[in-house]
Amino acid sequence: MIPASFEYRRAGSVEDALGWLAEDPDSTKLLAGGHSLLPLMKLRLATPGVLVDVGRVPGLSYVRDAGDHVAIGALTRHRDLEISEVARASVPLLAHVAGQVGDPQVRHRGTIGGSLAHGDPASDLPAAVLALDATMVADGPRGRREIAASDFFRGFLETALEPDEMLTEIRVRKAPSGWAFQKFNRRAQDWAIVGVAAVLDGEPRVALVNMGSTTVRARGTEEALAAGAEAADAAARAAEGLEPPSDLHASAEYRRHLATVLVRRALVEAAAARG
C-alpha cells in the first residue's frame, strides 16, 4: 500500500522541527526511523498532513556515560544501542531489549525515541525504560523538561509529550547487574504477547509489556518484593490490578497467567545474575 499524500519537511535541527510542529501540531508528525509511523501510514490508519523528518538532525544519536546515568540520544537506533559498549556495561537490560525489538532490519532503522514516543504498550523498550526508572527529556516551545518514565506512558499510543514537543534524550540510571527480560511471542518477529523487564539493582522494579492499554508496572510484585517476599510469591501478584487486552493472539486471562510465570522467571534470572 502507498501512504496518502503529505507535505514532507526535513529538519536540520531540533529548532527546525519544533518550529514546524508549532505551526500545526495536530496534523504534523515527526518521522525518525519511521518504523512505527510508516506502517500505519501505508495502511492509511495515519494520514498526517505534514511529516517532519528529524532523522538527520545531528547530535541526537549517542549513548554516553554521564556519571551516575547513561544518556541516550533519541535518534539512537536499536542496533546502535544493542551493541553500545556503554549500554552493555552500564544498562545491559536496555542493550539487550534493543536487540529484541522487531527483526534486524527494523533494528537498523528504528530509534529509541521513536519507539518511546509512539507509546505502544506492545513495544519492548517502554517496559525497559520503565523498569530502569529512566527520565525522558523533551524539548518544546516552552523549553526543556524532564519526565519520569512512570509519568510518561499515559494510555494507548499516548504519552506525556505535548503535540508540539519532541523527545530528545533518555537518561537511564546505571544498573549493571540484577536484570532480566522475558519476552513471550509466537514468532520471533512479533510483538510480545507478554513481556517482562525486571531490575533488582536497587529498589526492585518490574515493568510489563502488553499487559494494559499502556506500559505498566507490576505493582503487586514490586510491593511483595519490597516486603521481602520470595520470587514465586511476588510473581503470583504480577497481574494484580491490571487489565490486559484480549485480542487475536491471547485472551486477557491467559496474559494474566503468563505474566505470573514470566515475572517469576525474570525474578529468578535477575537474582541469579546479581549473584
Binding site: M1, Y8, R10, L31, G34, H35, L38, P39, K42, L43, D53, G55, R79, G102, D103, P104, Q105, V106, H108, R109, Q189
Partner: peptide, 27 residues
Amino acid sequence: CDTTSCGACTVLLDGESVKSCTLLAVQ
C-alpha cells in the same frame, strides 16, 4: 506485504539491511 513483516523488499542502506517498503525514498 504491507506491514514490514515479510522481508522480500530487503536491501542494504549504507551497508545494513533495511526493509525498503518501510522507508520513504526521501529518507
